[in-house]
């Protein structure tokens, strides 16, 4: 190693480095809300989920709400692991059933900020019914749906969000189905906040997460994230970094766009932005509202 190269070890010994107690072990500022003993996490190199968690932790800090008021609920899948990595109250639930757990927790503890952090296969496929009914009831919960277009953990099977003609393990000749348009699905069921960003838009994603957490009502943030090991490999799109470059070149910010027009075609333009932000009485507001006085 040449003397000019500075890695963390040599930098720590420099006179401008922080005090000794801090220097002995480097502590990431986000470790306050992460279970450090479980890191490094299981996500593949260049996977976008880690970036989403980093933005989520910043969003939690920005809301100014004490961390004991948060609960993170995840289902099964790559993104379902988030509940195990955040140092908050968290549930790792059965497949697709993250929203029912969240509904129960929200109704038992209405003062808590319940965040469902899960993937597209968990929320939209297996938990699809729970998603639309939670949106219909306008429960005051926040959904963060990390959409990587594929079932990552189980081996890259076709998901209901896989774009038309994309190849997966179970669609080697290309997908023939129409994919779900997640913002339109929840917006048509009555969601009060719907936004979509990619894992490249770190600061806008953080802002959207903060707004979604503070929103009274059902809020959903869809985050398009690269899956390097399966989606990119099966479709020969390179690595996660190549997908990040693709997002950079092909994302169009269209705030307030009609959610009908937000379909994602294979390797075509992706519309991102905040699409729905309305005020509406929540489920708890309406309990007993129709009762005779």
């Amino acid at each position: 190693m040449s003397p000019s190269r500075t890695d963390s070890a040599t930098r720590n010994a420099s006179p401008t480095a922080p005090p000794a107690a801090e220097r002995t072990a480097l502590r990431h500022p986000k470790d306050l809300l992460l279970r450090e003993d479980r890191l490094p996490h299981i996500w593949c190199p260049t996977c976008g989920i880690g970036t989403c968690v980093a933005s989520f932790i910043e969003a939690i800090a920005e809301t100014g709400i004490p961390e004991e008021k948060f609960a993170v609920i995840s289902g099964i899948g790559c993104t379902g692991r988030v509940a195990g990595y955040v140092k908050l109250d968290s549930f790792h639930t059965t497949h697709g059933r993250a929203i029912p757990y969240a509904t129960g927790l929200h109704l038992a503890h209405p003062e808590m900020k319940v965040v469902v952090f899960s993937g597209d296969g968990d929320l939209v496929a297996i938990g699809g019914n729970h998603l639309i009914h939670a949106a219909r009831r306008n429960l005051d919960i926040t959904i963060i749906c990390v959409n990587n277009f594929i079932y990552g953990m189980t081996g890259g099977q076709l998901a209901p969000t896989t774009p038309h003609t994309a190849r997966t393990t179970t669609s080697p000749k290309g997908n023939w189905e129409y994919p779900f348009n997640v913002p339109h699905l929840v917006a048509s069921c009555g969601a009060t906040y719907v936004a979509r960003w990619t894992s490249l838009h770190v600061r806008r994603m953080r802002q959207a997460m903060r707004e979604a957490i503070l929103k009274r009502g059902f809020s959903l943030v869809e985050i398009i994230a690269p899956c390097s090991t399966l989606y990119a490999r099966k479709n020969r799109l390179g690595t996660g970094y190549d997908l990040m470059k693709f997002y950079h070149d092909n994302c169009e910010v269209r705030h307030g766009a009609d959610t009908k027009e937000l379909d994602i075609e294979f390797q075509q333009k992706i519309a991102v932005g905040k699409f729905v932000d309305v005020e509406k009485p929540t489920f708890l507001d309406r309990i007993g509202a129709g009762r005779k006085k």
Binding site: K30, C47, G50
Partner: peptide, 12 residues
């Protein structure tokens, strides 16, 4: 930016 975009919480 490196801190926010790092998926591994490995840089700050």
């Amino acid at each position: 930016l490196c801190e926010v975009i790092c998926p591994e919480f490995a840089i700050y």
